[in-house]
């Protein structure tokens, strides 16, 4: 969008640079198309209504993935129920109730940065030690969901905070000058204003949870039966793909189809996020233009 129309020189060095950069772009695009294409070409044929409404049979080689979808969504639900309130509260705290230069917000920001850089397998270790063993939850959807809640928290907080900060300061001044409390300002004006941005942040978090595998390996476990409660072990879609590909001879076709389902879910989520951002940006800029 904001590409600069820089002079294209015909010097040799310039031409080589241009050619190489275009080559890289083509290479990346080609590889991307290759991966997605490969998964879709192999996976789409196995997709059918019964695939998503039946239980897996013979270790996943046959049958569908219904219990796996249910487990995946349950893990997602658990993690969001925990991460949203915590994340929103921390984001509001950082964006509205602390000054950026004070030691407390620096500390919070630093720990969030560290948290965001911790590898997911380490979250898995922690989740196993804390939720499964120490709190005695065992391999369960609850433990997996809580582990993922910890993992998405920094991403969630960062994007929610950015959404709040994008709300123009004029609203804050207006509210303060009208003698409104900070709390009321946040609840009645800033959160509604930031809502679309908050939704986008949330969607990014959902995407992360759905894509995660390593942190679930030894927190929510492998069991591919229909879970009866959050205390049951449940296999997520990503783990299903991993298991079929690695441990189940002949599991490849269904692994492909499951990958298609997972990618489609993520694509839908991603496009919603992009579409939401666009609309939001347009709304905000429209506001300041009037």
């Amino acid at each position: 969008m904001d590409t600069l129309a820089l002079p294209a020189s015909s010097k040799r060095e310039e031409r080589i640079a241009r050619a190489m950069i275009w080559c890289v772009a083509l290479l990346v695009t080609g590889t991307f198309a290759w991966i997605v294409g490969d998964v879709f070409v192999h996976g789409i044929s196995g997709l059918s209504l019964s695939f998503i409404t039946e239980a897996p049979e013979r270790g996943g080689r046959a049958g569908g993935i219904l219990p796996i979808i249910v487990s995946t969504l349950s893990i997602l639900a658990v993690s969001l129920v925990v991460a949203i309130p915590l994340g929103l509260a921390t984001a509001v705290l950082l964006a509205e109730f602390t000054r950026r230069d004070n030691w407390f917000s620096t500390l919070v920001a630093r720990s969030l940065d560290v948290l965001a850089a911790v590898p997911s397998i380490v979250f898995g270790l922690f989740g196993n030690a804390f939720f499964c063993v120490w709190l005695g939850m065992g391999y369960s959807i609850l433990a997996g969901g809580l582990t993922l809640a910890c993992m998405v928290l920094p991403i969630l907080i960062r994007s929610l905070e950015a959404a709040l900060r994008a709300v123009p300061d004029e609203y804050r001044f207006a509210a303060a000058a009208l003698g409104m409390s900070k709390t009321r300002t946040v609840l009645s004006i800033l959160l509604p204003c930031a809502a679309p941005g908050l939704v986008v942040g949330l969607i990014l978090g959902i995407g992360r949870v759905l894509a995660e595998t390593a942190a679930l390996l030894f927190t929510s476990g492998y069991v591919d039966r229909m879970p009866e409660s959050v205390m049951d072990s449940g296999r997520s879609l990503s783990i299903h793909i991993f298991d079929l590909a690695m441990n189940v001879p002949g599991g490849e076709p269904n692994a492909y189809s499951s990958a298609v389902v997972l990618i489609l879910m993520l694509l839908i989520i991603n496009f919603t996020a992009v579409w939401g951002t666009d609309r939001w940006v347009r709304k905000i800029s429209g506001q300041s233009a009037t």
């Binding site: 509260a89 109730f97 720990s111 979250f123 709390t183």
Partner: peptide, 28 residues
């Protein structure tokens, strides 16, 4: 620092939750 009494309560509540989310690093 904050003008209203509700704000005082809210800010302490938020601080508690904020501390909880970063205490996670320590917990891990």
């Amino acid at each position: 620092m904050y003008p209203s009494r509700i704000d005082q309560w809210v800010v302490w509540g938020l601080r508690f939750l904020g501390v909880a989310s970063c205490a996670l690093v320590g917990l891990i």
